[in-house]
């Protein structure tokens, strides 16, 4: 952990290139809470664990390692905002630190581009940094709220790669965690528990690209359960899940004829709103599902 709370901000693809509001919000809200997110120049796709891991694990290790080395060269830990990137960057970092043969194999390839994985940094999801009372913590978040998000019920979607498999993670229960609900409730919002809340969004493993209808059926099940519990919005910690829930609703309407109008937010976006950021500063108009009705309720 860095003593002065400075992290190399690893962006991934979907946050900067489809939901830049999450990026802006992450930087602004973190600043207010004592975390400095600095650019990580030259970073690439993490690479997408489902897409790359499926075809060639060696490439997955090497490309993830390259991103890590960029941060090692800056002498900074990495903070990121996407579960998928977390799997690639955190897991590869951990594996290379502990598996000598694997590390040597990867460094053989990195040598070709004058890079070397040394295992000198750690990787964090912004969500865990925000929850950790030694870094920020729920209390500090509550204190930083200027616009409590009252009057809405929010369903939390944890996603998969942040917590699972628990033997390779350190973020607690994978069956019934409540810490992200705590983060959301710190913003003044009410959370709802819904059926099968820990289920996957359906997008991962390349399935969104391979069989969109199949992926959407999984998303549809989640949305149905969320609606049944009275949710009026969804919050996530992963831009890919966000894409699946957000654009996915348009696709679900096309393919299945079902309409939800359920706005989908990354936690950073909600945190930004609660800290008083203007919706225009969050590029909410880029969202596929209109966020206006939600904003009317809370603001």
């Amino acid at each position: 952990m860095n003593a002065d709370r400075k992290y190399a901000f690893y962006l991934g693809c979907i946050a900067p290139n489809r939901y830049p509001g999450s990026e802006a919000a992450s930087i602004r809200t973190s600043k207010k809470l004592g975390i400095d997110l600095v650019p990580l120049e030259g970073a690439s796709c993490c690479p997408a664990p489902g897409a790359f891991g499926s075809i060639d694990l060696n490439v997955w290790y090497a490309m993830a390692a390259r991103n890590i080395v960029l941060a090692e060269q800056k002498g900074l830990d990495i903070a990121l905002v996407c579960n998928g990137c977390y799997k690639s960057i955190y897991e590869v970092n951990h594996k290379l630190k502990h598996d000598k043969a694997l590390r040597e194999g990867v460094n053989e390839v990195l040598k070709e581009i004058d890079m070397e994985f040394k295992g000198t940094i750690d990787v964090w999801h912004l969500g865990e940094l925000l929850y950790d009372p030694e870094i920020v913590g729920v209390e500090k978040i509550r204190e930083s709220v200027k616009v409590p998000l009252k009057g809405v019920k929010i369903a939390v979607h944890y996603g998969c790669h942040l917590l699972k498999p628990k033997k390779e993670r350190h973020l607690g229960s994978t069956e019934n965690p409540m810490w992200v609900e705590e983060l959301v409730e710190a913003l003044g919002a009410e959370t709802v528990q819904y059926r099968n809340k820990m289920q996957c969004c359906g997008a991962g493993g390349g399935v969104r690209g391979y069989d969109l209808a199949h992926a959407l059926d999984i998303t549809n099940e989640k949305l149905t359960n969320m609606v049944e519990a009275g949710a009026e919005a969804v919050v996530d910690l992963c831009p890919f899940c966000q894409l699946q829930f957000d654009r996915g609703q348009i696709e679900i309407e096309e393919k299945f004829g079902i309409k939800y109008d359920m706005p989908v937010f990354h936690y950073a976006e909600l945190l930004g709103l609660a800290q008083g950021m203007n919706p225009s500063e969050l590029a909410l108009d880029l969202h596929a599902i209109n966020t206006e009705p939600f904003l009317k309720k809370v603001l």
């Binding site: 290139n17 990026e23 997408a48 897409a51």
Partner: peptide
């Protein structure tokens, strides 16, 4: 990824949005 370094590359609608947000038009990635 071979072409741009990104599995989901940037596009102009997004560039405009980024600019409005006070971010660089392209992220500080590849």
């Amino acid at each position: 990824i071979y072409a741009s370094g990104h599995g989901v590359p940037n596009n102009d609608t997004n560039r405009a949005a980024r600019e409005k947000l006070g971010l660089t038009r392209d992220p500080p990635t590849t």
